Amino acid sequence: MGSLGPLEIIAIVLIILLLFGYKKLPAASRSLGQSLRIFKGEMKGMKSDDVAGKDAAQVTPVRAELAPPLSKDADLTAQLQDEARAAEIRAAELRARADRSGAVDGPR
């Protein structure tokens, strides 16, 4: 698997133009840029929270939920859906914890 050649790049650009149209392309790229800036800002915020040196007593331990090993007769789709639900629940818990700590710390 090598790098993209000029024909592949041209094909990708044409597909993007067909999907978005040349009039909507600047707005789409602007929106993508804003999303990337927001994402980078959130990642920096998470790193600064980690580096802030919180007291170990204040940090609640993270509980890991491991999926049981696959059995021969297990339905892979059902297991993946269960894992996805567990991940969504875990993400909601982390968001709630972050919201609570943000409310305690105040705006930055």
Rank of each mutant, 00 (worst) to 15 (best):
S35N: 11
R63L: 13
S31Q: 13
A103Q: 05
L18T: 12
K24C: 06
G33K: 07
G45A: 09
I38P: 04
R100A: 14
D105C: 07
D50T: 10
A27M: 08
K23P: 02
E88S: 14
L80Q: 01
G53A: 03
M1R: 02
M46V: 13
I38Y: 03
R97S: 14
K44A: 15
R108Q: 02
A86G: 10
R37G: 00
A74L: 03
G106K: 03
S35I: 02
D73R: 07
L17G: 12
L17D: 04
S29L: 15
D73T: 07
L7T: 11
A96N: 06
K72Q: 09
D73Y: 07
A91F: 11
R37Y: 05
E83L: 05
A67L: 04
L14P: 08
I15N: 11
G2E: 01
G106Y: 03
R97H: 09
I89L: 10
S35L: 12
A28R: 14
Q79H: 00
G102M: 00
Q34N: 10
T60E: 13
K47V: 13
A52T: 02
I15T: 14
D82F: 01
L18M: 11
G45Q: 05
K40I: 13
R37C: 03
D49N: 13
V59M: 08
R37M: 06
R108G: 08
E88K: 12
Q81T: 01
V51L: 14
S101F: 09
K72V: 12
L25Q: 01
L4W: 10
A84E: 06
P107G: 03
T60P: 05
E65P: 06
G2F: 01
R37H: 02
K24G: 06
T77N: 00
K40T: 06
K54V: 13
D49L: 15
K40P: 01
K23N: 11
M46W: 11
A86H: 03
S3W: 00
D55I: 07
R95Y: 02
Q79M: 04
V104W: 04
K72F: 09
L7F: 11
M43T: 13
R108F: 00
G2A: 04
V59N: 04
V62S: 06
G21I: 03
I15G: 11
A92K: 01
P107E: 05
E65H: 15
M46T: 09
A92W: 02
R37S: 08
A98T: 04
D75S: 02
D49Q: 12
K72G: 05
M1C: 03
L4A: 13
I89T: 14
I9R: 15
